[in-house]
Design a protein around this nucleic acid. Sequence first.
DNA 1: ACCCCACTTTACCGCCCGGTACAAAAAAAG
DNA 2: CTTTTTTTGTACCGGGCGGTAAAGTGGGGT
Lengths: 204, 204
Amino acid sequence: MSVDDRRGRGRPRGFQELEALDRAVHVFWEHGYEGASMSELTGAMGINKPSLYAVFGSKEELFRRAVARYRDTYVAYAAATLEQPTAYAVIESYLRAAVDALTSGGHPPGCLSIQGGLSCAPANSGISEFLADYRSAFESTLAQRLARAAREGDLTPGTDTAALARFVVTLGQGLAVHAAAGAGREDLQASVDIALRAVAAVSR
Amino acid sequence: MSVDDRRGRGRPRGFQELEALDRAVHVFWEHGYEGASMSELTGAMGINKPSLYAVFGSKEELFRRAVARYRDTYVAYAAATLEQPTAYAVIESYLRAAVDALTSGGHPPGCLSIQGGLSCAPANSGISEFLADYRSAFESTLAQRLARAAREGDLTPGTDTAALARFVVTLGQGLAVHAAAGAGREDLQASVDIALRAVAAVSR
DNA sequence: ACCCCACTTTACCGCCCGGTACAAAAAAAG
DNA sequence: CTTTTTTTGTACCGGGCGGTAAAGTGGGGT
C-alpha cells in the first residue's frame, strides 16, 4: 500500500503525510497530549484542520501515530543496543545512547512517552495507559535480553534479571525527566557512570 | 496570623481551608495541572467556584499552594532521611521511603511534582518550570548532604557527590514514573536493591 | 475540452474552560 | 430589631477547545 496507489482522480494532496506527522511529533513531544492544541498542531504541520481529520481521523489517532513514528525515528537506537554481546554492554550502550538521544538537538529534550501524558484528564485516561503500555514494552524486551544473558553466564548466578531490567528502565525514565527539565548531557552521563557500577557488581 | 484573627463580623466560612486544599492536592496529583478542571476541583473540594477564587485567587495559585501543602504533608519524610549518619544510610533510607511513599494507599500513586505538569501548553509553561525548580531543590539539598559525607570520609575519595545526588534523584524520579503507571512496591524496591549496589561501590 | 472528485479553505458548531457579577443568606455589632 | 460584613449559590461571561459542513479549487481521466 504505497503512496502512489491512489487513482489519479481528484486534486492531489498539498503536503507530505510523514513530514506533517513529524511536525506533530515535535509538538506533542514539547507540550504533551493535552497541552498540544489542534490550532498549534495544524499550524506546525502546515495544514488546516479538515485535512488533518481526513488523514489522521482524530487528535487521539494522530497522537498514537505520532508515538509510533517517534518510536521508529527516535527510539530505533534502543533495538540496536540489545545486540551488544554481554548484559553489561547492552545496558551501558542503552543508557549512553539514551542520554545522547534525550539531550540531542533538533528536537525537544526528554522523551515523548513520558512528557506526552503521564497523567491526564479523566476523559483522556486512555492516553496515559497507552503510553504506560508503550514504556513497559521495552522493559519486557530488555528483561528477555537480560534473561538470555543470565543463561549465557555473563551475570552472577541468582541475579534478578527482571529487577535489573526495571532498574535500567527506571533510571532511563528518570534521565528523561531530568532532560525535560533542561539537564545537560554530561550531568546525565555522570549519573550513568554511577549506575553502571551497580551493573558491574552483578556482571562477570 | 491564625485562622481566628478574623473579626467576628460576617457569615462564617462553611469549610476548612486546609481540608479543601488537601482534596485539591489529590486532584492535581491524579490528573495534573492541565488535566484538573475547575469543575472537578470544586467538586472534590466541596465548595463552589467563587469561594475557591476568594480563598486561593486563581487556579495557578491554588496549584502552587497545593504543591507546598504536598511537600509538607507527603514529602516531609525526605528531610528526615538526610539525618542518617552515613551517605549510604541517607541514600538507602531515602530511596526506601520514597518507594513506600510513591506506592502507599490513601492517595494517587506517583509524585505530584512530576505528574503535575512535566510539560504543559505554552500558556502554562510557568507550571513546568515551577515544578522543575521544586524538584531540583531537593537534589541540591541531597548534594550538600553528600558533600558533607565526603568530608566526613564515608565516601571513597574522589567521588563526584553532585553526580551521586543526581543519580539518586534521577532514580527516584524514574521510580515515580513507574509508580504512576501502577508498578508494585516490591518491584520498585527490587530496583532500589540494585541501585544500592552502585552506592555501596562508592562508600566505605 | 470537459467532467470528475479528492483535497483545501472558510466559516461555523456545541461544549467546556477559567473566571466573575450579583444577589440571597447568615452571623456579629450596634 | 437594623445594620454591617462576609460567604454562599446561581447564573453568566468571553474565549478556546475538538471537530465538522459546505463551498471553492485544481489536477487527473476520458
